[in-house]
């Protein structure tokens, strides 16, 4: 660590403050915009202090909905997004932890082939396989359903890889000690592997929750009904480009609301998150 004296002590702070300002200012502006009537924002004279209609806007946004092309209250969208993000995150974690467990701890024919097949899916994100995936989802009647929103996004090579690397750092002696202690593979999984992976699971949950929350392309394809749409889609639909006036206060309030859950998840889990990524103690 370099020790600074005098003026140079403040340089890092100044740099950090500038960074924070660059990130925080648009968010602040978004908040300010959500508290002014739509005509104030629309005429291009954006004020820099919060306006008078904070409660009205947020009430309307959450429970009434905009009068634009989507009339669904944002509360519904929040619920949809939350369900989608949680199911994707938990689904990815459960499937990948099981597949990583089998690849690392069991010897079966074509084990490495199975691993590489999983690995190859890294090269096939939804955007690449969008048509066949959509066709399958449509044929299975998954349009406008939570299953349709989440299942195609769950298979995950990244998380499998992540858990595989972690499992390989668990000492072999622990498996052997479990064998001697009379614990079969499932017992070993529940009693040893799962508790040891707690911090990793938490870290992955944060990453995958945000991944799920930010999904845009897939939900826009798979949902047509307003009551199934997610908040990210909702924002897009509220911005009217044709003849009508965009209700900017509602749009900006929705954007603010859309930010809250991911921020909450990160704030609540950041300790686990950091530990899960850096912890080495076994």
């Amino acid at each position: 660590m370099v020790e600074h004296r005098g003026f140079s002590r403040f340089v890092p702070h100044i740099v950090l403050c500038i960074g924070v300002a660059i990130i925080a200012f648009p968010v602040y502006l978004c908040f300010v915009g959500s508290t002014h009537p739509q005509d104030v924002t629309s005429n291009g004279q954006m004020p820099l202090t919060p306006g008078p209609i904070f409660f009205e806007t947020y009430y309307k946004t959450l429970f009434v909905g905009s009068s634009g092309s989507t009339r669904e209250p944002v509360a519904t969208m929040l619920v949809n997004s939350f369900i989608m993000a949680c199911v994707i995150a938990l689904g990815k974690i459960s499937i990948s932890i099981i597949s990583a467990f089998s690849v690392v701890y069991f010897k079966f024919p074509f084990r490495m082939a199975a691993f590489w097949l999983i690995f190859i899916t890294l090269m096939l994100p939804v955007e690449v396989r969008i048509y066949p995936t959509y066709k399958i989802a449509a044929d299975l009647n998954l349009l406008d359903s939570y299953a349709g929103l989440t299942v195609p996004l769950i298979a995950s090579a990244t998380a499998t890889l992540f858990f595989r690397q972690f499992f390989m750092t668990i000492p072999d002696e622990l498996v052997e000690a479990s064998k001697l202690d009379g614990a079969g593979p499932m017992r070993f999984f529940w009693d040893t592997v799962l508790p040891l992976s707690r911090t990793n699971i938490a870290a992955l949950f944060v990453i995958l929750f945000i991944y799920g929350w930010n999904q845009y392309l897939w939900p826009i394809l798979i949902t047509t009904r307003d009551d199934m749409q997610t908040i990210v889609i909702g924002i897009k639909k509220m911005i009217v480009t044709a003849d009508a006036l965009t209700e900017w206060n509602v749009v900006l309030a929705t954007a603010m609301l859309a930010m809250l859950p991911p921020v909450t998840v990160v704030v609540l889990m950041q300790r686990w998150f950091v530990r899960g990524l850096v912890e080495t103690e076994k």
Partner: peptide, 20 residues
Amino acid sequence: VEPADRDIAMVFQNYALYPH
């Protein structure tokens, strides 16, 4: 016979205690 049923106990070099 499975290790668990051999009626033996083993002490490992790196102890192999369950950390959690």
